[in-house]
């Protein structure tokens, strides 16, 4: 199946500088009963974003109009906890295309890559600087160039490389789907089965 290609993303950002944000916060379990992939964005960070009566919590970053954009900047160990891919669907459905942190939980990282959401790992020192910058100056644009594996803040000297596995990068840039890659290997898989 074809996916949207990811090459260069330049956007304003949303800062959420908390550590160990788990997938139960990203999308609480009571919203997991759907059998579809769509519609999870409206409950992204549900219990931080809305109070018990469903009213927006004014201080929460997604409810502050000055913070908008396709890049989420967050704290260490983002996406820990449950394997629910609904967390990635909710983030993508809300409109984010990249998440920047200094570390991600493993399963979240794979889930993100499988959905064209780019997890960008940068050094914690730069993450602190970046968070401070976009918090103080909402509207700051960040540029993420996947081909060059470079994150930068245009107009400032802030820039950093980031790691991406070569295979994953090719899939993202060409909009390829890794299931298609495996489906094309059927004969090799069958040969493996016979060899056991």
């Amino acid at each position: 199946m074809k996916r949207e290609k990811f090459t260069i993303l330049e956007s304003t950002c949303v800062p959420l500088p908390l550590e160990n944000i788990d997938t139960d916060q990203i999308i609480p379990a009571r919203f997991l009963s759907s059998t579809e992939r769509e519609g999870f964005g409206e409950n992204l960070f549900r219990d931080w974003r809305f109070d018990g009566n469903g009213n927006p919590v004014p201080g929460f970053v997604l409810n502050r109009p000055e913070y908008r954009g396709e890049i989420l900047i967050t704290g260490s160990n983002f996406g820990c906890g449950s394997s629910r891919e609904h967390a990635v669907w909710a983030i993508a459905d809300y409109g984010f295309r990249a998440v920047v942190s200094d570390s991600f939980a493993d399963i979240f990282m794979n889930n993100a890559l499988n959905n064209g959401l780019l997890p960008v790992v940068i050094h914690s020192g730069l993450l602190t600087q970046l968070t401070a910058l976009v918090t103080e100056k909402p509207g700051t644009r960040i540029r993420i160039d996947l081909d060059d594996q470079l994150l930068s803040v245009p107009g400032t000297g802030l820039r950093s490389g980031f790691p991406v596995n070569g295979f994953r990068k090719e899939c993202l840039m060409k909009g390829l789907d890794s299931i298609d890659y495996l489906l094309a290997m059927k004969e090799e898989i069958e040969a493996y089965e016979r060899s056991r």
């Binding site: 394997s83 629910r84 399963i107 794979n110 889930n111 499988n114 959905n115 299931i179």
Partner: peptide, 8 residues
């Protein structure tokens, strides 16, 4: 694993 991997 995530759901895309379940599909895989």
């Amino acid at each position: 694993i995530g759901t895309s991997e379940v599909e895989m």
